[in-house]
């Protein structure tokens, strides 16, 4: 496999270029593109759990909420520096992974899914009620006016937040490409295929899972932090367990691979955006859509794109090429 530096950044550059192009082609869709990028990171986090390790969590909003509330609480009560806020969110994500990981990853698949749901509900309750004095409960925290100017990019301006998000997404994608090809990634996939075989081969599957879980919490927390920065306020709806389904649906829509999460997010957000233009609530549409995807498009959007891409240029169907082939062409 091509392991040159270029091969790691080629795909991510194309991806970011597409998003930037879209931002200038559809100027009024900037918020949408920001959400796709942020949510994409969140979905990548979940894909590490599901796509790599085969673990399903019904409590992903909790890990998103950790990042969002860490940044928000810091900005609303303590400091003014946005980069510090993001750094703190990453640290809290790391701590959450280290702390919850050992207890949760030992659990059987079904318990793991549901205990995360329970954790998420607890988290919601914490920010709504118990931590009321610092989170302001349902009213949410507002702190945009407290932002200090930052060097290079002025993150008080939405346009600059967009650029900043592009940089973060780029780094995340490079990391994800690396993971895809690394021994760590192979080890995580091995857990999904057969944990007992991995153990037999001498892997410490507990540590592997713990690592995967912690990467997930860090990335989800980072995504939450970006939300908090962009909107300048958070409220408890970010950690609602009811929204756990969105994550799973988008992950399934994506269908795995390095770019699956981004395309899944794009498809999911696109449909949500479209449906909510003529329907108050989009549950019905998302439900029907998911069932169709589950039964008819087993590979998800990315899988389907790759199949089509492979048909176009038979012979070589490398993911990075398929992206440019399908979207730029």
């Amino acid at each position: 496999m091509d392991k040159s530096f270029l091969s790691y950044i080629r795909g991510p550059i194309v991806m970011i270029a597409l998003l930037v192009a879209a931002r200038y082609l559809f100027p009024n869709k900037m918020t949408f593109l920001f959400e796709v990028s942020t949510f994409g990171i969140y979905i990548i986090a979940n894909d590490i759990l599901y796509g790599y390790m085969g673990m399903v969590s019904f409590g992903q909003p909790f890990y998103l909420g950790i990042g969002a509330y860490t940044s928000a609480i810091y900005l609303a009560h303590i400091g003014h520096n946005i980069f510090v806020a993001i750094g703190l969110a990453i640290i809290m994500g790391l701590l959450a992974g280290l702390l919850f990981g050992p207890a949760y990853i030992r659990l059987r698949g079904d318990y793991f899914a549901l205990i995360n749901a329970a954790t998420c509900a607890m988290g919601l309750f914490m920010v709504e009620k118990i931590l009321y004095p610092i989170t302001n409960g349902d009213d949410g925290l507002w702190y945009r006016s407290r932002f200090h100017e930052t060097p290079f990019l002025d993150l008080r301006k939405p346009a600059d937040v967009f650029w900043f998000t592009m940089i973060v997404l780029f780094l995340v994608l490079v990391f994800y490409t690396w993971l895809d090809r690394s021994t760590l990634g192979a080890g995580l996939r091995g857990i999904k295929a057969s944990e007992s075989k991995m153990k037999f081969l001498g892997y410490d599957t507990f540590k592997l899972r713990w690592t995967g879980f912690t990467i997930m919490t860090i990335l989800a927390s980072l995504a939450g932090s970006l939300y908090a920065i962009n909107y300048g306020f958070v409220n408890p709806s970010i950690t609602e367990p009811a929204r756990a389904a969105e994550v799973l649906v988008a992950t399934l829509l994506g269908g795995g691979g390095v770019y699956g999460p981004i395309f899944g997010t794009l498809a999911f957000m696109g449909i949500k955006d479209f449906v909510s233009s003529f329907m108050d609530r989009w549950e019905l549409a998302v439900g029907v859509l998911t069932i169709i995807v589950c039964f008819k498009f087993k590979g998800g959007v990315w899988g389907t794109l790759q199949t089509i891409g492979a048909k176009f240029k038979t012979g070589k169907a490398k993911p990075a090429d398929a992206v440019s082939g399908e979207n730029a062409g």
Binding site: G54, V56, A113, A245, L248, E283, L284
Partner: peptide
């Protein structure tokens, strides 16, 4: 089928059900 699949399918049914209720009875 695998766990994720059954959970997502049944959750979709749940969302469809809620959607229908909202459609008929409002929020």
């Amino acid at each position: 089928k695998e766990l994720m699949f059954t959970m997502v399918v049944t959750f979709s049914v749940f969302m469809i059900g809620i959607g229908l209720i909202q459609y008929i009875f409002g929020l």
